[in-house]
C-alpha cells in the first residue's frame, strides 16, 4: 500500500514536471506542428465508446457479400475459421477445458471490431475497404454470432450500442498471484 502511494505521488510530480517544462518553453524546439488534417488522416482509433467512428453505414445483407468476397477465403464461409481465426461461436465455452475465444464469445466491445477490421483486415489488403463496407462486414459477423438481427444496419450510433455478452468478464492484473 505504502509503495502504491509513493508511486502515485511520483506520477503526479512527473506529470507536473512534464507539463511545466513544456509550458515554460524549455523544450528542444524539435519537430513541427501536426495539422488537424494530418491527424485526421492517421487517427483511426475507435475507443470503446465509439468516439471517432466515421460517417457511413452498412447492413448485414451487404456484409454477407463483403465477407464472401474478402474474408471467407481465410475465415471460412460462415466464419468458422481456417487460415484466419474462428470468428463465430464459442459462447458458453470460456470456463470449460476447451475454450473457444471468438468475437461473439470473448470480445468485450463491438467497437473494437470496426477498429480492427479497418486497420488490419483483409490481411492481404488492409485499409482497403470503404467505411460502409467495414460497418457492413462487422454487422454480418455480429449477426452470425446472434448479436444482431438479419435486418440490422450499423453506423456510428448503432455500433457502440451493441452489447457484447462477455463484456463484464474482464478483471485487472492481481499478480503476483502465486506464493
Amino acid at each position: 500500500m505504502a509503495r502504491r502511494d509513493t508511486r502515485a505521488i511520483g506520477l503526479a510530480a512527473l506529470l507536473v514536471l512534464a507539463a511545466s517544462a513544456a509550458r515554460a518553453g524549455e523544450g528542444y524546439g524539435i519537430g513541427r506542428p501536426a495539422t488537424a488534417a494530418e491527424i485526421a488522416g492517421w487517427n483511426i482509433d475507435i475507443d470503446r465508446a465509439g468516439d471517432n467512428l466515421p460517417p457511413g453505414r452498412g447492413s448485414v445483407d451487404r456484409g454477407r457479400v463483403v465477407f464472401a468476397e474478402h474474408c471467407a477465403s481465410c475465415h471460412g464461409a460462415k466464419g468458422e475459421g481456417a487460415l484466419g481465426d474462428q470468428l463465430v461461436g464459442g459462447q458458453g465455452t470460456l470456463a470449460t477445458a476447451k475454450p473457444v475465444r471468438t468475437v461473439g464469445s470473448f470480445w468485450p466491445y463491438a467497437t473494437t471490431l470496426f477498429d480492427y477490421i479497418r486497420r488490419a483486415m483483409p490481411q492481404n489488403a488492409p485499409q482497403s475497404l470503404s467505411n460502409d463496407d467495414v460497418y457492413a462486414v462487422a454487422a454480418f459477423i455480429l449477426n452470425l454470432n446472434g448479436l444482431l438481427p438479419a435486418d440490422a444496419v450499423l453506423d456510428a450510433h448503432a455500433l457502440p450500442a451493441v452489447r457484447m455478452p462477455n463484456r463484464d468478464s474482464f478483471v485487472g492484473d492481481p499478480r503476483p498471484d502465486v506464493r
Binding site: L94, V103, F106, W107, P108, Y109, T112, Y116, A120, S169
Partner: peptide
C-alpha cells in the same frame, strides 16, 4: 481496448473471466 489488448494478450482464468 484494441484487439491486441482484448481478444489477445488477455489471460483466461478457469472460471471464464479474463
Amino acid at each position: 481496448y484494441s484487439r491486441e489488448e482484448t481478444s489477445k494478450y488477455t489471460d483466461l482464468m478457469p472460471d471464464g473471466t479474463a
